[in-house]
Design a protein around this nucleic acid. Sequence first.
DNA 1: GCCGTCACTATGCGATCGTATAGTCACTAT
DNA 2: ATAGTGACTATACGATCGCATAGTGACGGC
Lengths: 210, 210
Amino acid sequence: MTTSFRRAPDFDRRTDLIEATMDCIVELGIQGTSVRAVATKAGVSNGLIRHHFASKENLIAEAYGRTIAIITGPPLAIAAGDGSPREKLRRFIIASISGPVAEPRILSLWATFISQVHINDRFREIHRTQYVAYRAACRSLIQGVVEENRVRISADELHHLSIALNAIMDGLWLEGCLSAEEIDAALQIEIGLGAVERLLGIKLGREVPA
Amino acid sequence: MTTSFRRAPDFDRRTDLIEATMDCIVELGIQGTSVRAVATKAGVSNGLIRHHFASKENLIAEAYGRTIAIITGPPLAIAAGDGSPREKLRRFIIASISGPVAEPRILSLWATFISQVHINDRFREIHRTQYVAYRAACRSLIQGVVEENRVRISADELHHLSIALNAIMDGLWLEGCLSAEEIDAALQIEIGLGAVERLLGIKLGREVPA
DNA sequence: GCCGTCACTATGCGATCGTATAGTCACTAT
DNA sequence: ATAGTGACTATACGATCGCATAGTGACGGC
């Protein structure tokens, strides 16, 4: 009666199911992402999802967490890492608009979750936390670069520049994802670096680590 | 058996239903936006929706069209209207990040549709058309301002600046909607104008029409 | 080697989905 | 005044939804 199955360690299976959920959201939309669709995508029976996740809502929330990690993980790691302020800002910009985050499927996932941030408290909390962290990174990077160049700016100016930097990163990422087939990644980076240089009035350089 | 009802002109009823659909998407998410939910929101029976729209998909697509019109309508009208290049760009920026478009519900709607652009041909076409129009407006406005200031830039530079202007507008709009309660509209505009001035190296002025 | 544990499948329940259809009544044209 | 039109309600159908439950078999501890 029961067909054979492979047993997977708990962690692996959970990860599989979360990624299957993300696939479904991308391919079917959130309204097409049923428990059964996720199970089929993951190659398991639908009952298994309830075994690993208390509810569908929990599963979706974990998919949001994973998505956010893909988006802000690399740039935040750079901002928190080593290097000169100028170099860090340069790499922060590149990580914010290219690499894994620049895949259209990530935009699709992000848009799905963002559209529901205001009606789902858990989503709101996830968003809030990451938003604050990213903005703080923008602020700290700008402050570092400005000090490095011995430029004096007011706290208000710093705040405004942080918002503007954040906006440019978001906007370029958005545009890049939405027309990924026609905008070259290197060009995208060049535009991003150029825009931030003009915004701050500071040269970031273009040297690529060998 | 049948309760009484008011008859509405065809156009009014269609508009009502489209707006009820938008309300539902904002309040319930796309997955909660059922034909019955829309009908209840509009105060009519669920059968009426099928009478006015061939399918639920058609109804949703019209809601997307209406959303896009709210977002790009005002700035595109300014770009196509009268005025000096500098003044038009200034008003274009303001219309792109403040006014009706800056309401969080609009972002919610936009994100809902954007998340499905790649899996729905009609969505893709609506998006494509508006995207091209907005980008062209950015390009034409920058060209106008640059010529007005007797600055010479290459076609490539114009292209890059258009992308960057587009990105700043998108990003500031996004940020403004996502934290509407804590970012002042006037400050948002000031940041936008300032960022574009630095991007182009040109002063836009701040005079407000009395 | 067998035994208990739990990851896993299979199946069913009630609710709700989009859509189809039949009938009703508000309104217009004459 | 009345007949015709179509905007509108009411209801039903089959599919599919999230979730619950019962049972099965893979695998580690002994």
